[in-house]
Nucleic acid binder design. Structure first.
Length: 982
RNA sequence: GCUCAGAUGGUGGAACUGGUAGACACGCAGGACUUAAAAUCCUGUUCCCGUAAACGGAGUGCGGGUUCGAUUCCCGCUCUGAGUACCA
């Protein structure tokens, strides 16, 4: 039989499902290997051709590792809470779980037909109560924990309470809110229960606090920083504004240093690590207090302005201070004379949107408050300004301006005519600031003559001595907002008593999402959960309180909650006692290989590392980092196909649309006349006449042609850039009777690389390709497309080649009449060489994630064996195993035809590479003259360089090139090359 | 602006530590088989000069450098993509 991919693929997919072929065991003598994909959000559009790219790569890797003798965990699931299902629910009234369920079914069908070796018995769905029970449980552990800086880990809140009860707040070094109280043990005990709870909330790792949030009115929810791009929501592109709201937050900043340090221990792409480093944004510097002048004359809330600086060594170059317009001291620092200026400036700042403020970095603006501070080290009088280049949210919202060393300060000083003080001898500040750290200080009091390092140390020491500053580390990263005013997410397991949050009992988990009538905020503006009737927390059930009913928290958890720990659930997916058993975690430990897109760099991947570290602190996880090795698959871009339409000045309805093939368009495009008008000559008329006859050709007003417009056409009716013209009318009816001006009888399309999107008609669905070529071809083609990590446009042009390869492979095992025929003869040297070359090559390629090169090598191997007419079992049986991870269906079929037990190829041992088969005794030395190769001379590989040189020089070809002149020098690299210098 | 990645035939790409640039595949051209088409197979295919071949010249974004030898290393520049953005 010819290669019948449809039957073969169906047969083996069924077999794998029926026999649980890929079910991983939690106990095994084999070493473990955990291969994880970023699980998908099941959207209504289904999978497009870009999704499976990473899944195919990880599947090849997982299958390869099984052949290499590992116990492989390779699971899949769904990140099934999310906004699109809820938006759809708002529009249609359909419960999000219904659409989610339907979408998951589509995804599953699509995934199954590609032949992935997932262990589906471990499937997880973040929206299933069995799953989010544990998301809620982890939330409770965070609520019950605080970060002890001395131990540098999270600890139980009970431990903190015990400390407060015995020693008060003294001796506690915690990551906490800034407004924590100082108290003795007795004072603590005297606090009311409510006051105690209020205080504890300032320490908990998940806490409620009034914070400035990114409020997106259109989506009716707050967004995380990484969900906001340039002042608009990443999803949907709606405007986002800053708003103060009571919000759940996660104290991720407690882990900032560990998140940063951990990056050095993991094997991730450097750009991705760099992104996380930037996001965490550590800067080492100092905080300095500048005393405010004339303190007596005002009602003061504080008598200094605190700034953060990374260049405290430049403190003698400070010529003014700038504070953010939103800074709390602005009001009291503004003198009556300056009031009008300041008010005007603040009004102007407010008007500017976030976007304008960012875009407009060139214009210098600001206003003087009228007040002064003094330099803490030399008492210099320093004016205080406000300007919007200082951000309220970073550091202290105030900067000390050193115009000689900072370009922004320099421009500001120039603009407002403020002094620029040179502080380093080699500083060049005629035209711009010079931030150098080289040279010796001048004009700098006690650090004059010192270098950067000593100066910094001296200044910090002095500041600490006089109590007006200290060394400080600042992070850009903020605590993560952990709440959404939405329905389709995990309910927060919290109820409110006297306005303070309390956890529900662990035994009451999961707190299930209640049914509501519609998925919109309530009339009073509460989140959708406010619509739930009879949804109150009754403390009687848990044996505490007097049976009052309390309000639950009405916001739900954000999208990243469920995905921040899911790799642990796969280890023990059915456990209803724990999120995963200690034994399972002990065995699988962490993810050995994680493949996914780089768009999750600062969201999912950072939050996951954070939760993992927390789980380790509370003794649940073993490894500090969850994902040992990570590979980013590149994005698959769309490749739109374009036809070019002639546009007339007036568009008389009597004329048919005229479309030009690519090269005809190009000719006319480049040949415009002096007015920029396309220049149409008789050729076009002739072309049309040839194809459509005289009547049509004569009837076109050529002189009225104004321009060409590109029109995107469905890529599915284009093959190898040739448009199937008869099909165009089906999706663009206006072109049903269009005139197609062809070249050589074919209509070629142009192309454009852009996002894969429905509106560009460039979406390619894997289903169609599987239908036409089969899963094995799709798998290999996606790999053949290019390096995994590189972004590339999807283009089906080469898929035929891969399909042909598989047929050719199939033919190796069959005779001319498609009868399965293999011989038991001993293989020849050449056959063994071909086999062992591919064994080695594929092994090396997989280990370095270079899947595209293996596909080429397979083609070479099959070409070689075809030329050798090799159908020997000893060769083919091994070759099938090597190919199996890439094209598992055809490999299974041939494996069983060879007489092996069905399904056993999944665990068959990867063939052992024997280098002896590759040993050559002769080598065709390329002989180059001055680096240009002119000829090849075959010589024994055992020959020593001196003899090679002699042999080469004696060769007739070389003599001819030398033309009687003696060579200047001869370089011989044994087994590589000979270079003759003349 | 800053950081990172990249630029190789008509196209996707290969060349792993500096050692035969263009493997493999698509496309294209020619041929075989066929009444014909599809399928399949064979040959050619970086560019330029040369009627074909031998042969010669140029050639990995551009300009320089190191080297016997550079797609690979170094310096400068151009372009493309991604991330990030007044971070003190």
């Amino acid at each position: 039989m010819d290669y019948q991919f449809k039957d073969i693929e169906k047969k083996w997919q069924q077999f794998w499902a029926d026999n649980n072929t890929f079910k991983a065991d939690n106990t095994s003598d084999k070493p473990k290997y955990y291969v994880l994909d970023m699980f998908p959000y099941p959207s209504g559009a289904g999978l497009h051709v870009g999704h499976p790219l990473g899944y195919i790569a990880s599947d090849i890797f997982a299958r390869y590792k099984r052949n290499k003798g590992f116990n492989v965990l390779h699971p899949m699931g769904y990140d099934s809470f999310g906004l699109p299902a809820e938006q759809y629910a708002i529009q249609t009234g359909q419960h999000p779980s219904v659409t989610t369920e339907a979408n998951i079914a589509t995804y599953r069908r699509q995934l199954d037909q590609i032949g992935f070796s997932f262990d589906w018995s471990r499937e997880v769905r973040t929206s299933s109560p069995d799953y989010y029970k544990w998301t809620q449980w982890i939330f409770m552990q965070l609520f019950n924990s605080w970060y002890n800086k001395d131990a540098d880990k999270a600890e139980s809140i009970e431990k903190l309470i015990t400390h407060f009860e015995t020693k008060g707040s003294a001796g506690i070094s915690a990551v906490c809110d800034e407004d924590v109280l100082t108290f003795t043990a007795d004072e603590w005990k005297a606090f009311s229960k409510k006051a105690q709870q209020e205080e504890l909330l300032k320490y908990r790792l998940t806490y409620l606090r009034e914070s400035t949030v990114n409020w997106c009115a259109a989506l009716g929810t707050v967004l995380a920083n990484d969900e906001v791009k340039d002042g608009f929501s990443e999803r949907g592109g709606y405007p986002v504004e800053q708003k103060k709201m009571m919000q759940w937050s996660m104290r991720i900043t407690a882990y900032a240093e560990r998140l940063l340090q951990g990056l050095d221990t993991i094997d991730w792409p450097e750009p991705l690590k760099e992104m996380q480093r930037n996001w965490i944004g550590k800067s080492v510097g100092a905080s300095v207090k500048f005393p405010i002048e004339n303190q007596e004359s005002r009602t003061k809330s504080q008598d200094f302005i605190e700034v953060f600086t990374t260049r405290v060594d430049t403190i003698f170059g400070v010529s003014f201070l700038v504070i953010a317009p939103e800074h709390e001291l602005v009001k009291e620092l503004t003198t009556p004379e300056q009031q009008a200026d300041i008010d005007a400036y603040i009004a102007q700042t407010k008007k500017k949107s976030e976007l304008d403020r960012m875009a407009d970095t060139k214009t210098v603006s600001g206003a003087f408050t009228g007040s002064y501070v003094t330099n803490p080290l030399n008492g210099a009088k320093i004016p205080v300004w406000i300007a919007d280049y200082v951000l309220a949210g970073y550091g202290t919202g105030a900067v000390m301006a050193v115009p000689s060393g900072d370009q922004r300060d320099y421009l500001f000083a120039k603009h407002f005519d403020l002094p620029i003080i040179q502080i380093i001898d080699i500083q060049k500040i005629d035209t711009e600031a010079d931030p150098t750290k080289e040279g010796k200080y001048i004009n700098s009091d006690f650090i004059n003559g010192l270098g950067y390092k000593e100066a910094t140390a001296a200044v910090v020491a002095k500041l600490e001595e006089i109590g007006l500053g200290k060394a400080k580390v600042n992070f850009r990263m903020r605590d993560a907002i952990f709440g959404r005013q939405r329905y389709w997410g995990e309910p927060v397991p919290v109820y409110f008593k006297d306005g303070l949050p309390y956890l529900i009992q662990e035994s009451e988990l999961p707190l299930v999402l209640p049914e509501i009538d519609k998925y919109l905020p309530t009339e009073t503006g509460e989140p959708p959960l406010g619509r739930a009737t009879d949804w109150k927390y009754n403390t009687l059930s848990s044996g505490e309180g007097r049976g009052e009913a309390y309000e639950y928290e009405l916001s739900t958890m954000p999208g990243w909650a469920g995905s921040s720990w899911y790799w642990y659930r796969y280890m023990d997916a059915d456990n209803n006692q724990e999120f995963a058993s200690e034994k399972a975690i002990e065995y699988w430990k962490d993810v050995d290989l994680y493949i996914g897109g780089s768009e999750h760099a600062t969201g999912h991947l950072l939050y996951s590392r954070f939760w993992n570290k927390f789980l380790k602190d509370i003794g649940k996880a073993i490894e500090e980092e969850p994902f040992k090795k990570l590979i980013n698959q590149g994005m698959i871009q769309g490749r739109s196909s374009i036809v070019y339409r002639l546009v007339f000045d007036e568009n008389p309805s009597g004329y048919l649309p005229i479309l030009l093939s690519k090269n005809i368009f190009k000719d006319y495009e480049s040949a415009r006349d002096s007015n920029g008008q396309p220049f149409l000559n008789e050729d076009l008329k002739e072309l049309i006449k040839k194809q459509y006859g005289k009547d049509v050709a004569e009837n076109i007003p050529y002189s009225n042609v104004r321009t060409f417009i590109p029109i995107r056409v469905d890529v599915n009716i284009v093959e190898n850039d040739i448009l199937k013209t008869e099909k165009l009318g089906l999706h663009l009816p206006e072109f049903k009777d269009a005139i197609f001006v062809k070249e050589n009888g074919k209509f070629y399309t142009g192309h454009e690389i852009e996002k894969m999107s429905k509106r560009y008609f460039n979406v390619v669905n894997p289903d169609d390709l599987v239908e036409r070529y089969g899963a094995d071809t799709l798998r290999m083609y996606e790999m053949f497309l290019g390096p995994l990590e590189q972004s590339k446009p999807w283009n089906t042009n080469g898929i035929e080649g891969v399909f042909k390869f598989l047929r050719k492979f199939w033919r190796l095992f069959h005779d001319a009449n498609w009868n399965f025929t293999v011989s038991n003869e001993a293989p020849t040297k050449a056959e063994l060489k071909a086999l062992h070359k591919i064994i080695k090559k594929v092994e090396d390629d997989i280990e370095r994630f270079s899947f595209n090169t293996s596909v080429s090598s397979f083609m070479i191997a099959v070409n070689e064996l075809t030329d050798l007419k090799c159908n020997k079992r000893a060769i083919l049986e091994n070759l099938v195993i090597v190919l199996a991870p890439y094209a598992p269906h055809i490999a299974e079929e041939l494996w069983s035809l060879l007489g092996n037990p069905a399904g056993s190829i999944s665990t068959a041992a990867y063939p052992k590479f024997n280098p002896e088969y590759l040993v050559e005794d002769e080598f065709a030395y390329p002989v180059s003259f001055n680096g240009k190769v002119r000829t090849n001379i075959s010589l024994p590989l055992t020959m020593e360089p001196a003899d090679v040189e002699a042999a080469v020089l004696a060769h007739a070809d070389v003599q001819k090139h030398l033309d009687g002149k003696p060579p200047k020098k001869v370089i011989v690299v044994k087994g590589r090359i000979v270079n003759v210098v003349v």
